[in-house]
């Protein structure tokens, strides 16, 4: 009982650190670059728009990491999704059908990965590494060109991508004398819905709780009567499913498919989840944390871009620094826990 309390505490502390860190970072951005438009609401909304896909993917990654697994195939899958959408729409397939097709592909891909991890007991890293190779290669098999979605190829998809949901507050006049109303795009709405749904799923459904149980301890989960293999497989299906939705969000932002698309996105997703307090050893984590992890990544990149004089490699380095810090904190918590149990 006592043991559980500690893990709960460390969990909340990690989440708290993440949220505080985000506020500190964002506040710093506002203080340093307030005169450069950082304080406008749109800056924050831009972070959401740019990272909508990443939010969905980080949610899926969190679920997989809860089972002590990892899925590094997400970047490749996003590239494949973008390419499928771009090529499909140019071939005249209706946008809703294409979206359905992409999600279906994601689910099938997840089933295969999940089968290898859950039932054949192969290391998740190796399986998803093969998945990464496969999806990246398939992207090139579909087309080695850079294909774009234009108004001609699909007016509907084009309209989705360009639809601005204007917010009624926080508008301002810019230096050109044009009034700029803050807005979000459809992909942000999708991402936020995914976030809320997954949050409640993890909290209140049997499947959500079984993810935690499997990650906490496979043996005890099995003793509790859970089908560990099936739970693991479902986690990968969920991850690939969410990744496909993320891929659509990503595609709505870039409107093009290419082999180089979303390179390294898997590491962004993993680092967001880790910074958000998800333990890579499984059993502890929360999508809200991952959401803030994504926001922190976005804020760092936004600050560096706003500065305009820093080298573009700084966001990666700073994120890696944060990752280091959080991993060390996690290991300290793990040490406390193992001491308490002993």
């Amino acid at each position: 009982m006592k043991n559980k309390k500690v893990s709960l505490n460390s969990n909340t502390i990690l989440l708290l650190i993440t949220i505080v860190l985000f506020i500190v970072l964002y506040g710093m951005g506002c203080i340093m670059y307030g005169n450069k438009g950082f304080t406008h609401l749109q800056t924050f909304l831009n972070i959401l728009i740019t990272n909508a896909g990443l939010i969905c993917i980080a949610c899926g990654m969190t679920c997989v990491m809860l089972t002590a697994g990892i899925d590094i195939s997400v970047g490749g899958l996003v590239a494949m999704d973008c390419m499928m959408i771009a090529v499909g729409l140019n071939k005249g397939i209706p946008a809703p059908l294409m979206v359905g097709l992409v999600i279906l592909t994601g689910i099938i891909f997840g089933l295969v990965q999940g089968f290898f991890v859950g039932y054949l007991e192969i290391q998740p890293f190796i399986v998803s590494m093969a998945g990464m190779f496969f999806t990246r290669g398939m992207t090139a098999v579909i087309s080695t060109d850079q294909v774009s979605v234009t108004e001609k190829s699909s007016p509907l998809y084009y309209a989705w991508a360009n639809y601005k949901i204007k917010l009624p507050f926080g508008g301002y006049m810019n230096n050109k004398g044009k009034e700029v109303l803050p807005y979000i795009r459809i992909n942000v709405v999708i991402a936020l819905i995914v976030l809320v749904v997954i949050f409640f799923m993890l909290r209140h459904t049997k499947f959500g709780r079984s993810l935690y149980a499997v990650g906490g301890s496979e043996q005890s989960a099995a003793m509790m009567g859970l089908n560990v293999k099936s739970v693991k497989m479902k986690a990968y299906v969920l991850s690939s499913f969410l990744c496909s939705i993320g891929g659509i969000c990503f595609s709505l932002n870039t409107m093009s498919g290419s082999v180089q698309q979303a390179l390294g996105l898997e590491m962004d997703a993993i680092s967001s989840a880790v910074i958000g307090g998800t333990l890579l050893t499984g059993g502890v984590g929360n999508v809200i944390g991952s959401f803030f992890g994504v926001l922190i990544n976005g804020t760092i990149s936004s600050i560096v871009k706003t500065n305009g004089k820093l080298a573009s490699s700084w966001p990666n380095i700073l994120t890696a620094g944060l990752l280091f810090m959080f991993i060390v904190i996690q290991s300290v918590f793990a040490a406390i826990r193992s001491k308490k149990t002993r």
Partner: peptide
Amino acid sequence: VSTNQAPVFKAIIVIIIVAIQAPPV
């Protein structure tokens, strides 16, 4: 096979190799 397409085959090879070595198999 083009540079970018080659990973597909690599992926299939990886999966076959690890599947053969997997304990349940």
